[in-house]
Amino acid sequence: MSLTATDWRNLSLSALALLAAACLPWVVGNYHLTIGVTIAMYAVLATSWALFSGPTHYISLATAAFFGVGAYVTGIGLQHLPYWVLLPLAGLIGAVMAALVGLATLRLSGVYFVIFTLGLAEFVRQIITWGQNVSGTKGLYVLTSITERDIYWQLLGLAALVWALGWLIGRSRLGFALRIIGDDETVAKHSGINTARAKILLFMVPGAVAAITGAVLAPRYVYIEPALAFTPMLSFQVVIMALLGGTGRLWGPLVGVIPFTFLWEAISISFPNQTTLLLGVAFLLIVYFLPRGFVGLIEDARRRMGSEGAR
């Protein structure tokens, strides 16, 4: 594959931006580092979510399920295995889970997939809770020497990986196939694309990434229990941030994650009891007024400026 001058410029700019972001822990205090971790976490989750759901328009609500499984991999595995094995292991388990979910649902229409992923976190939560009841344990302590700073850098590395992967997929045959599926699945089938296989392969990416994210973040919680690790709110927030930013571009979700994290921080402090209500309102506003997210707004503005310049 050959890279054009624009590709090189974009790549080096992205690398510079990542380097700048990596310096954050030395510049700001603890509070802002916490927000930085939150932003990095949602950036990873939302970008990987959009990799699959953007082109295919299949809304996945399973993020919390993968995330929770990842957190449990760290929680349980820490006593038996070295830490550096756990992240790839979580990714592997996440990918396998995603493949199984995909096999069951992605051959069918989108609605089945949504419903299935909606229940997945609750399903896994009930199984784990039951397992704990049977074995008589309650929660898990995750005691490590990993600091907030280490978590931040790990997430940043993961984000770089996700962007690189997204960029590569976008240039590959798989990415091309997915865009056709998103436009018209029947046409895709008739032009010889194995649509189910393409969708399952791609769905494994957000599955693995969300599981790794959960594994990375487990030390931050110190104590994990099913209700915390599988909180359904996580899935919804990821969806809303990705949609707010726009799923049409690789950098789209990031544009949604940053403002939404600050907004959400402000909302949780000022109206702690109305968060559910306000999340609902945010969903409605996006569907009716920003169907293509900030990316859509930016592109419209660019086009307008471009056409004025031409005149």
């Binding site: 328009h57 809304i59 229409s109 989108g110 609605v111 949504v114 919804f236 949609l243 109305q274 968060t275 559910t276 209500l277 306000l278 999340l279 609902g280 309102v281 945010a282 969903f283 409605l284 996006i286 569907v287 009716y288 169907p291």
Partner: peptide
């Protein structure tokens, strides 16, 4: 379907909140 799912999700959150 996609739009209806997102909208009714929003509505469901709003009604839970209310």
């Amino acid at each position: 379907e996609v739009d209806a799912i997102l909208t009714t999700f929003g509505l469901s959150f709003v009604s839970v909140g209310l």
